[in-house]
Write a protein that binds this DNA or RNA. Structure first.
Length: 321
DNA sequence: AGCACA
């Protein structure tokens, strides 16, 4: 299956913003783009968070970032200097990290503290182990007395925005409420947490949403054809909201493409980056759209399994063709 | 401003 002659130097990441067309990137950047995802200056996919209240919980950091496209994992660190706490949030790519950095709520009005979120100096190195929690705590404090509650998430209750019941200090609640207001038009997807329990495995087709209304099939093909194994794209636009199904030859190839394209913007995008997820059975290329009042209500596993996604307050039910 | 885990 021959692909059209797509531009081999197409760079999704550089279509992100066009703020300064007068100042092109340095020549060593636009000259050629190899698929080195190992980093140069724009390869940082980890955020450094400071200015946290000293009673912040790892779960709260997780809640801050978990719904951002491309989020991978986060860590809370007690630095050991006083009660200082900092956090690291890791994303699947640089663009997702940048987007989350700008979108994250930075204020805790109750005590006036301001969260500082910036790119980390280096990426997180530790890979999240499959059974491990979605967040990790590093405690360099010397005193054992200090609230040594959490260590790592159990990952089973990570679908709520609430802290654990024992986490009921005033400031704990305050941070929780102020940092995580109910913005329910957010993307909820279990796959982004990489839990494939119940022996359910994704297939080699990706589901792609948050495409702008002007997205074209060619444009998306162009982006996808950079990735080995890409074979077929189906763009559908029921209800005015385009979504796409992209087939790959192998699951691994689909994963690779998803990781790199997660959260990136196509040139036509009039919104945030693409939301990409696995689907769990081959050939899900038709779908229903059901508007829902309260996005939170529709979360969870559908009676028919996991073949739905909730996006922007719209429930999309994937059907077999 | 404060940046770990390997």
């Amino acid at each position: 299956m021959a692909h059209p002659p797509y531009d081999p130097y197409y760079m999704p990441s550089l279509h992100h913003h066009h703020h300064s067309p007068a100042t092109p990137p340095p020549s060593h950047h636009n000259h050629r783009y190899h698929h080195l995802h190992q980093q140069q200056d724009s390869g940082i996919n980890t955020l450094f968070v400071s200015g946290l209240p000293d009673d912040v919980k790892a779960r709260e950091i997780h809640n801050l970032f978990r719904r951002k496209p491309g989020f991978d994992s986060c860590q809370l660190k007690y630095t050991g200097r006083g009660n200082q706490v900092v956090a690291f949030a890791t994303f699947f790519n640089h663009q997702s990290a940048i987007a989350a950095m700008h979108e994250a709520v930075k204020f805790d009005p109750q005590n006036g503290s301001v969260l500082h979120i910036e790119l980390a100096r280096s990426n997180s190195r530790k890979k999240r182990k499959p059974g491990g929690g979605a967040y990790v705590v590093i405690d360099k404090r010397t005193k054992v007395a200090a609230n040594a509650q959490e260590t790592s998430s159990a990952d089973g209750d990570s679908d709520t925005d609430e802290a654990s019941p024992r986490d009921n200090t005033d400031s704990g609640n305050r941070v929780r409420q102020q940092l995580f207001p109910d913005n329910s038009a957010t993307f909820v997807n279990e796959q982004s947490e990489k839990t494939f329990e119940g022996g359910v495995q994704p297939c080699s087709t990706l589901f792609i949403a948050n495409l702008g209304p002007n997205c074209t099939e060619d444009e998306l093909k162009q982006a996808l054809s950079l990735y080995p194994g890409f074979s077929l794209l189906k763009l559908r636009a029921k209800g005015g909201m385009p979504v796409a199904f992209a087939d790959f030859e192998e699951i691994e190839q689909a994963s690779k493409a998803m990781e790199e394209l997660q959260g990136t913007m196509l040139p036509s995008s009039d919104r945030g980056g693409m939301h990409i997820e696995y689907i769990f059975s081959t050939h899900f290329t038709s779908y229903k759209i059901c508007k829902v009042q309260n996005a939170e209500d529709s979360r969870g596993k559908g009676s028919r399994g996991r073949n739905f996604t909730l996006f922007g307050g719209v429930l999309i039910q994937l059907d077999c063709c």
